[in-house]
Computed example of a mutant assay.
Amino acid sequence: MAEAYLTQQLSLQSAALVEATQRLVQTPSPNPPGDTAAVARVAKELLSGIKNVEISEYETGPGIVNLVARVTSGTLGKRLVFNGHLDTYPVSGVLAENCDLWSGELVITLAGDEESGGVLGSGWLLNNVDIVRGDAVVNADVGSPRVVRFGEKGTFWVEITAEGVAGHSAHVHNGVNAIDRLRGALDAAQSIERIPFESPREVTEAIENAKHVSEAISGDGESRTLQTITFNVGVIQGGVSPNLIPSKASAKCDLRLPVGVSIADVEAHLREQLDPMEGISWTPLQRYEPTWTSPSERIVQSALKASKEVVGPTGLDSVVNMRVGGSDTRIFRLAGIPSVVIGCTPFGMGAEDEYVLVKELEQVAKIQALTAYDFLRK
């Protein structure tokens, strides 16, 4: 069978996959400042080894380099897009060597601006490069080879500012404490966690059906987090001394929105709760709607099938689920393109010595190849 052949070929290329990943990880590309020129050169060299590949490079800002690579089967068919950061490397060389097994084309987009919201990365590519608009997208952001993520929560960042009247703390009757006002405003804003909403049944059923597998990987309570509005105060500033009444205070907050809650809902709540409060103002900093692809879509089922074939039964089955974190797939979903995320489990994510398992790196490469084959097969 073609699936077994492709898996075997990927197993033979395991050492090359690990070496390619090491080269990419060893090349600095932190954001900020967001300079991806060096890692783009490495990625371009790696992509150049794919048979009959066409590579384009786009610098959309100082040092923000994006790469787009295309491999065509030579026959008409669908277009599948592999989307990732410039520190990932989707494996398509195996499929490029066996164009007779599939039709259509594969496109690889390596964005240089994911951590800053994707405006100059995947968003720019989707709006300016025709071949980036495919029939489906596979993204290799972190997760688990056993969980196919078909959607993600929305994001709303807001800065809330409180104005008061300065004075000495011994004479509180002559001042107005801005931090006290801010505390009240934060409580009012956080009450959004209790507003009623309804998610599509297809989404809630998928979350519940995935709970026993997904929470074993991502932690107890994930399914509840996926189905609730969360409010986190990440930054607070105000005051200079304990014996002075602060005249100004501010906080930056992160709200995550499940499917069924819109940006308009959040803004309406903040206007209702905060606008009448004296000395309080608020400003949105970043906002993205929740997005999801139906679990019944072909790309989701192809990825699920591939995950089951590669990972196999080990006490936990492969499942489909939503995602608590964000990725560039939201950009494609908002453009009407079905998209999934399936990647390695992150260990120590965001901390020193963050790592993934070589075994899972190999599994994800196989899952991506088999997903592409199943989606594009003749």
Rank of each mutant, 00 (worst) to 15 (best):
D328V: 10
L316R: 13
G315A: 14
T291S: 15
T329K: 02
L304K: 07
V311R: 03
R333K: 12
K305V: 06
G326P: 04
P313D: 11
E309K: 01
R333L: 04
I331Q: 13
V300F: 01
R333M: 12
S302V: 02
V319S: 08
V324Y: 01
Q301G: 04
S307L: 11
L316F: 14
T293S: 12
G325P: 03
T293V: 01
T314R: 12
S296Y: 10
K308C: 12
N321C: 15
V311D: 06
K305I: 13
L316G: 09
D328E: 14
M322A: 07
P295I: 06
S302P: 00
R323N: 06
D317G: 15
F332D: 05
F332P: 12
R323F: 07
V324G: 05
V320Y: 03
S296R: 12
V324S: 04
S302G: 04
P313I: 09
V300M: 00
L304V: 09
M322W: 05
T293M: 08
G325H: 13
G312M: 06
A306F: 00
Q301C: 14
F332L: 13
S294R: 15
A306G: 12
R298W: 11
I299P: 08
R333H: 06
N321V: 03
S296M: 01
E297L: 08
S294G: 05
L304E: 03
K305W: 15
P313T: 04
T293G: 05
E309D: 00
V319E: 10
S327Q: 09
S294Y: 04
S294W: 00
D317F: 00
R323D: 10
T314V: 15
R298H: 05
L316Q: 11
R298L: 04
D317Y: 03
S294C: 10
D317A: 15
E309H: 02
P313S: 06
S318Q: 01
S296C: 04
S296P: 10
L304I: 03
